[in-house]
């Protein structure tokens, strides 16, 4: 029980830390400094001591702002879908094992539960903006939905090929099973899907600010926007924890080893994501879909071959 309460804070702060790291790494790779870890001494009295929790400040600030609800929106859907999305993303943290701690991931069918929760969260991130009635949001959502479909394909196949090869639908059992070739191929497949799901460039076309203003979130402001940002923080944690627990066999290790390993590996993943983010301009949605279909079908094929072997 105590783990379940602890994981709420851990996941929240890890999510914050990851999104800070993405910002920091990209800034460093762009010849900039990015949010400061140690504020300059003479500015500390006004500007605070550290900015490691910069994303948290953003969210708190958004909560303190007035929320504008546009006339043209469908109010109920517009207001509630961010919350539902957040709830889905939040609940899924309990079903994903965290470095050797099983949490709720040993309930039957936990793999199915997690995949449904994640899909649900992303779906409500799409549905809310549709209700806002802004043309920009609509175009953004359309792109997001297309991207969602192709990435989901790879995501599900990778999850279930693991399930088949480990012969279990329980996440915890999969995560403590033996490492084999499918881990690598399915892991690659999952990684490419995560790129699209977390809107890492070149796949951030749904938020392409030069083309469609702020995309799906154009009409959101204040608290509701803050909720979406919060959801994103949990989602980052979800995907990274899921990736590590399924594909990298650290869960069998004792806790004092697995937690540092988890941290190191997750930071490494974030670093790779930031490099990809920095090096690429964004694709057109058409190119992105073609790229995905190509890559995913190749990876799927390899995946299936390794599975059969």
């Amino acid at each position: 029980m105590i783990e379940l309460i602890l994981i709420i804070f851990t996941s929240f702060f890890l999510g914050l830390f990851y999104s800070f790291l993405i910002r920091k790494f990209s800034a460093r790779l762009q010849w900039r400094i990015g949010p400061l870890v140690f504020m300059y001494k003479d500015l500390r009295s006004i500007m605070g001591i550290t900015r490691i929790i910069q994303p948290l400040y953003d969210i708190i600030k958004l909560f303190g702002k007035k929320t504008i609800i546009p006339e043209s929106s469908r109010k109920r859907l517009f207001i509630y879908s961010p919350y539902i999305s957040l709830i889905f993303a939040f609940i899924s943290i309990f079903f994903i094992p965290f470095s050797g701690i099983s949490l709720l991931s040993n309930v039957p069918y936990s793999l199915v539960i997690v995949s449904y929760l994640l899909i649900g969260s992303l779906l409500f991130m799409i549905i809310g903006p549709i209700a806002s009635g802004s043309p920009w949001a609509f175009i953004g959502v359309r792109r997001e939905a297309e991207l969602f479909l192709v990435t989901e394909f790879g995501f599900i196949i990778s999850l279930f090929s693991m399930a088949i090869s480990k012969n279990s639908l329980i996440l915890w059992e999969i995560s403590i099973s033996e490492f084999n070739l499918v881990n690598i191929t399915a892991g690659l497949l999952m990684f490419t899907s995560i790129l699209g799901k977390l809107h890492i460039k070149p796949f951030d076309m749904s938020e392409a600010e030069a083309e469609i203003v702020a995309g799906p979130y154009t009409e959101y402001s204040g608290k509701l926007l803050g909720i979406y940002y919060l959801t994103k923080i949990f989602l980052i944690y979800d995907f990274i924890a899921l990736f590590i627990s399924i594909f990298i066999p650290i869960n069998t290790l004792p806790i004092y080893l697995s937690i540092p390993l988890f941290l190191i590996i997750s930071i490494l993943i974030i670093f790779i994501l930031s490099i990809i983010h920095v090096l690429n301009p964004r694709y057109r949605i058409k190119n992105a879909l073609i790229w995905y279909i190509k890559i995913i079908s190749i990876l799927c094929l390899i995946n299936i071959i390794t599975m059969v072997m």
């Binding site: 900039r32 400094i33 990015g34 910069q54 504008i68 926007l225």
Partner: peptide, 15 residues
């Protein structure tokens, strides 16, 4: 580099 202080340019006036 104003991002040092958390300043960001946003695309929508609502943000």
């Amino acid at each position: 580099d104003v991002e040092r202080f958390g300043i960001q340019l946003v695309a929508s006036p609502r943000h």
